[in-house]
Nucleic acid binder design. Structure first.
Length: 424
DNA sequence: CCTCCACCGGAAAGTCCGGTCG
DNA sequence: CGACCGGACTTTCCGGTGGAGG
């Protein structure tokens, strides 16, 4: 078995490579070309050329569903902007915040202020008269705001702040920070700030204070979803850089694009699918990536997504799901809400957990149905009442492994059910 | 045609919890 | 620090219902 030393690596190296550089196939990669986004790129560039002239750029709202290239486009333009500003020795700073991660007024102001402090520290000699770093918690909010103002005004510059997933702020009720930012320029003497809001949700403006909308939404740029042909162009471009020459069949890209187009024109999904197909092909040392690999990649992604969803379920929902599993393993007969509740409640008692109400469990069953983990439909058994008929919609083994971590799975037969259902 | 089972599912009130404000 | 707030999760309450059996 053992070959001469290093043999195993040499062998792998000599195999035909599927990938040239898989970084190009990751959604996080920021390309230089944005197929079918000329209009958006041009409009944004026209707005963001302002700081190069020392002017304040208009505030912009950018809308578009996930995977329409909003974030990548903005990040790319911001990098370019910094670049050119450097060449022209203009004082232009950019800051990017994701409101999904940084989601409170305090944290936004603190993060922003620390970022600006950091760039200053890198550029000036005497750091001693800068305000100190804002801790992640503890200060009064207006003190953080004051620090931010001091740092911003430390020298003359133009700064563009990007707030990605800005709609999260509205749904978390922290949109007042937007009001603060929208009028920050009146508190500043040297620096001018422009704000970019990126939103996945087209309607989020309607839940926003009109004052914020009028000042932050000076310009609006919409990123529509890609259709299948456009996705194909994107995949084509990426795969040329990411995959080795000739390993991709034309129909493969076609299929990936079609899959993703059906699912809301999400370029991220399309890329994930293509890359996963490549990884499967690589794993089995195939010479080419085929449509079969795509199909399997699609299944794998779906499988992983489901497993992730089940794992992140609240414990109570897991128990409900587990009850369905146990019932189904035991008897393939119709499973009704009552059956589930019975098993569920004895599982709860078994683990010493609170037992939720029937009403709640009924709701949880509906939620699991929405997720697609189970199928539930209401049926009437006439004389014998009305109930949801439930069946598992995923591999039972998958449920077991996803649920097992925190729940000790016991055999249904050894559970002390309150009453044994009709026998034979 | 009426009954009545075994639930469904909307509405509203209650509980918890993390975060914010004074 | 305690009062207060809003959101997520639950419970309580309850009117509603398709159809087998009478």
């Amino acid at each position: 078995m053992q070959k001469k030393s290093g043999g195993i690596f040499k062998e792998l190296l000599e195999n035909k490579q599927i990938f040239k550089d898989r970084e190009y196939l990751r959604p996080s990669h920021i390309p230089e070309n944005f197929p079918h986004r000329d209009e958006q790129v041009n409009r944004l560039a026209r707005i963001w050329v302002a700081p190069l002239r020392g002017e304040t750029p208009s505030n912009v709202f950018i809308y578009g569903k996930t995977g329409t290239g909003k974030t990548a486009t903005v990040k790319y333009l911001m990098e370019e902007l910094e670049h050119v500003a450097g060449d022209l020795s203009r004082e232009v700073e950019v800051a990017y915040l994701n409101c999904e991660v940084v989601d409170t007024k305090y944290r936004i102001l603190a993060t922003l202020s620390n970022k600006i402090r950091e760039t200053l520290v890198g550029e000036i000699d005497d750091v001693s008269d800068l305000p100190e770093k804002v801790p992640m918690t503890g200060w009064p909010t207006d003190e953080v705001y004051g620090t931010l103002l001091t740092l911003l005004d430390y020298r003359k510059q133009v700064i563009i702040v990007t707030l990605d997933e800005i709609d999260r702020l509205v749904s978390k009720g922290t949109s007042d920070v937007l009001y603060l930012l929208s009028r920050i320029n009146s508190d500043l003497d040297n620096t001018k700030m422009g704000v970019v809001g990126i939103s996945n949700n087209l309607n989020f403006v309607s839940d926003l204070d009109p004052r914020i909308v009028s000042s932050l939404g000076e310009e609006e740029v919409v990123f529509p979803p890609y259709d299948a042909n456009q996705l194909e162009d994107i995949l084509e471009e990426r795969s040329e850089k990411g995959f080795a020459d000739g390993v991709i069949e034309e129909s493969v890209i076609n299929l990936c694009a079609a899959h993703a187009a059906r699912k809301h024109g999400d370029a991220r999904k399309a890329l994930d699918l293509l890359r996963n197909a490549g990884e499967i092909a690589e794993e089995e040392e195939a010479q080419k990536v085929t449509t079969d690999h795509v199909t399997r990649a699609s299944r794998k992604i779906e499988h992983d997504r489901m497993e992730e969803a089940i794992k992140s379920l609240p414990d109570q929902s897991k128990l409900v799901l587990l009850s369905v599993l146990l019932l189904q393993e035991r008897k393939a007969r119709k499973i009704g809400t009552g059956d589930i509740y019975e098993v569920y409640s004895s599982l709860c008692r078994q683990h010493g957990w609170d037992v939720l109400t029937r009403r709640r469990v009924s709701g949880l069953i509906s939620e699991l149905d929405m997720m697609g983990v189970i199928n539930a439909r209401v049926v009437s058994n006439g004389r014998y009442g009305r109930t949801k008929e439930v069946e598992l919609n995923v591999d039972p083994l998958q449920v077991r492994s996803a649920v097992q971590r925190e729940i000790y799975i016991q055999d249904l037969d050894s559970l002390p059910l309150s009453k044994q259902k009709k026998l034979g």
